[in-house]
């Protein structure tokens, strides 16, 4: 065993800041769940007993479960085109996905709201072409929330899928074809299983991101689509109820942690970092 070298001191500023300004405060917040207003598990009993908390937690899970497959299904063809199209096309697609990815979530959510509002672009378009007579309610409901989430989360699926697809040896598909598999079967039996690590990574990223979303449900969703992060904000800003806020944070964090652990078990984090 060689001695620890002096470069370890370079870690000090970052780890100190992380401990004082992140781990400490988050630990403090989670501890409120068991100590506020008095020691015990009463906050978790409240989460279980009050229908509003259960409903919001169920809602959050449901919305994540709806958003994830939509994003994967829409991201798949884009990643496929990126991985197997010409170099020129790939550059354009990467640029196309990166530009919105780098634009603030708030700006994109606001932009989506403009498209979806009652007299917004989509409704004017549909009425102008005579598809509908009355504007469709697209904003401040489930439709608006889903549109916002899908829009913002597409890159989270496209990039991991692309990196999985780019590593697939094209000779494999040719081999399947030579051995007599029709294209569709070769795709389902050979290609699709090889993209699975990318699908799992993308889907997990989308799912856990959606679980914690605040801006999109607050801006594009309605009162009936309230999500956990909004509830946490409400508990602190409106009621000063740090106990319930801590308990909700713990539940949200546990759900995120369990999903990441599952991903680590099935795909491995090394794979994700590639």
């Amino acid at each position: 065993m060689r001695p620890i070298d002096r470069r370890i001191w370079l870690l000090l500023p970052a780890t100190l800041l992380l401990t004082v300004a992140f781990l400490g405060p988050v630990g403090w917040l989670l501890a409120r769940a068991f100590t506020f207003p008095q020691p015990g598990f009463q906050n978790f009993e409240l989460l279980w007993q009050r229908p509003v908390y259960l409903r919001v937690m169920g809602n959050t899970l449901l919305i994540s479960a709806i958003v994830t497959p939509i994003v994967v299904l829409l991201g798949f063809p884009v990643a496929h085109m990126m991985a197997h199209g010409s170099a020129r096309l790939r550059r354009w697609l990467v640029f196309l996905v990166l530009v919105p990815f780098w634009t603030s979530l708030l700006v994109r959510s606001f932009a989506t709201a403009i498209l979806l509002q009652r007299h917004g672009v989509i409704n004017s378009f549909l009425i102008g072409f005579g598809f509908i007579d009355e504007p469709l309610p697209l904003l401040y409901n489930l439709t608006g929330l889903l549109a916002g989430c899908v829009q913002v989360l597409l890159p989270f699926v496209i990039f991991p899928l692309y990196s999985a697809m780019a590593r697939i040896d094209p000779a494999l598909m040719k081999a399947a074809a030579t051995l007599g598999a029709p294209p569709l079967r070769a795709f389902v039996r050979v290609y699709l299983p090889l993209t699975l690590p990318g699908v799992m990574t993308g889907a997990t990223l989308v799912f856990i991101s959606t679980l914690g979303y605040y801006i999109i449900p607050a801006l594009l969703g309605g009162a009936r689509q309230q999500m956990v992060a909004q509830l946490i904000q409400d508990q602190i800003a409106t009621f000063g109820n740090w106990g319930v806020a801590g308990a909700l944070s713990l539940v949200l964090l546990l759900a995120t942690g369990v999903l990441l652990a599952l991903l680590q078990l099935t795909v491995g984090l090394k794979e994700i970092a590639r």
């Binding site: 780890t15 781990l23 914690g212």
Partner: peptide, 23 residues
């Protein structure tokens, strides 16, 4: 240590925000 340094990305923003506000 590397995994710990990645935590601020993984933990939902609302939790970090509430925690910092509280402290």
């Amino acid at each position: 240590i590397m995994a710990c340094l990645m935590l601020p990305i993984v933990v939902p923003g609302m939790i970090t925000a509430a925690a910092l506000f509280g402290v």
